[in-house]
Write a protein that binds this DNA or RNA. Structure first.
Length: 378
RNA sequence: GCGUCGGUGGCAGAGUGGUCAAAUGCACAUGGCUGUAAACCAUGCGACUUCGGUCUACGGAGGUUCGAAUCCUCCCCGGCGCA
């Protein structure tokens, strides 16, 4: 059972309000999707993640395959039961790890660049620690060196064992440093893999195809047409899109214009609070980002007035909540002084309180986003 | 009182004649982080600067030396031991 209903289309933009129905309930879209890589939104219990307003999480095939292994997850009754999360779940395919553990690690870059690089990765180059072939990817765990192989078939097999409501096709998330020829070859491979994923699937779990194409409009459009024509239940848009928010927005618009409009679109790995309006405005329905929890553990608090480095000494005497306008349990209960103290003392509770607040903030921003679309503001 | 060891930047702690504005760690500050390799990474951290340097600093005061955080003398302070 998988369904996407569009409740309202914006007259101002490509934004739409919708509901995705899954075996584990509904997702009001546009929705923010917290990242639970290893079957946990770090530092938080599943019911806390739900209490913070999260509708759906995305777990990771590569990491769960590494530990504890899909067999153990299946034995535990599947991901939902394993982590005691009762709402919808997605699993990312491991395609991002092709980048993050490959060229990303080699060059110390994330998938988003700020400016044009001096050198680009030519076609035919292999990352240092992993090997990308026509059929799949040979990984080596950066933690213990364990060898690991993922392919469309393997990824789908694992994702089916994990049992999330929504799976993603196995792709290559290309490095933002890849040159045009590299991207062409990679895109072709990702397209071939997409068809293979569809072919080998055995369950009724929804499967999203992934559009790539880097910062090249023609490749993005080509990819969107090709992937969009395949019988996926929805679509992910991955990789990088250029050097600024504006080009990201434009590229999303081009891609979404080519995708079937009655199916949900997920923007992979993008979603700082300031990104929400244009992601939705470009026609995105769901989007995930590690930012709330990732930043929280480093002391960066997201607030209605921007970011806050809670570890700074000055907060030690500040009795205000993290965000005076926030309605979360943390802001109702604890002061900046307390959380600053905990973070400075490396107390785990500090990371947890910060994570909860940030997560709540992101979810609240998504709620606000829906309201604004409803009101015709976006 | 005698003996002995020691007093170095916000803290801890290297250095024991020039290559020392002084290792390293912590603390602090700034920047980065967008499908989690990440409770992480990078930079700065005496003052002034035309960024080439200049000045002030290693308990205090003198001294030796071309040159002292480093050697000598006295003083102050602390640990330990003996009275």
């Amino acid at each position: 059972m998988f369904e996407f209903k569009i409740l309202k289309r914006s007259k101002k933009s490509r934004a739409r309000l919708g509901v995705i129905t899954t075996p584990h309930g509904e997702i009001e879209t546009p929705a923010f999707v917290p990242v639970a890589t290893r079957a946990t939104v770090r530092t938080l219990e599943s019911d806390e993640v739900a209490a913070a307003g999260s509708q759906v999480l995305i777990c990771n095939t590569y990491h769960l395959h590494t530990a504890p292994g899909e067999k153990n997850v299946k034995r535990a009754g599947g991901l939902h039961h394993f982590m005691q999360w009762k709402r919808p779940l997605m699993t990312d395919s491991g395609g991002f790890q092709v980048f993050s553990l490959g060229f990303g690690k080699d060059h110390g870059v994330g998938k988003i660049l700020k400016e044009e690089p001096e050198r680009r990765i030519p076609e035919g180059t292999q990352p240092t620690h992993i090997k990308i072939t026509d059929d799949g990817v040979h990984f080596r765990s950066p933690i213990d060196g364990t060898e690991l192989y993922l392919s469309p078939k393997e990824s789908i097999r694992i994702q089916e064992a994990l049992g999330a409501d929504i799976m993603f096709a196995f792709d290559e998330c290309p490095s933002p440093l890849a040159d045009e020829d590299y991207l062409h070859t990679s895109l072709e491979r990702t397209h071939r893999w997409a068809a293979q994923c569809l072919k080998v699937r055995k369950t009724s779990q929804a499967l999203y195809g992934i559009v790539q194409g880097g910062g090249f409009k023609n490749m993005r459009i080509e990819s969107a047409r090709l992937i969009g024509a395949l019988p996926f239940e929805g679509f992910g848009v991955g990789g990088e899109f250029g050097y600024d928010k504006r080009s990201l927005q434009k590229m999303l618009e081009h891609v979404h214009d080519e995708l079937p409009e009655n199916k949900p679109r997920h923007v992979l790995g993008v979603g700082h609070p300031e990104d929400f309006p244009y992601i939705a405005g470009a026609g995105g329905d769901t989007f995930d980002c590690i930012a709330p929890t990732h930043y929280a553990r480093r002391g960066t608090i997201f607030t209605s007035k921007g970011r806050l480095q809670i570890r700074n000494q000055r907060h030690l005497t500040d009795q205000k909540p993290l965000d005076p306008t926030c309605s979360c349990d943390i802001c109702k209960t604890y002061s900046r002084a307390y959380i600053s103290h905990l973070m400075r003392a490396y107390e785990l509770t500090g990371m947890k309180l910060a994570s909860y607040h940030n997560l709540h903030f992101f979810n609240a921003q998504a709620t606000l986003l829906r309201k604004r679309i409803q009101n015709g503001e976006i």
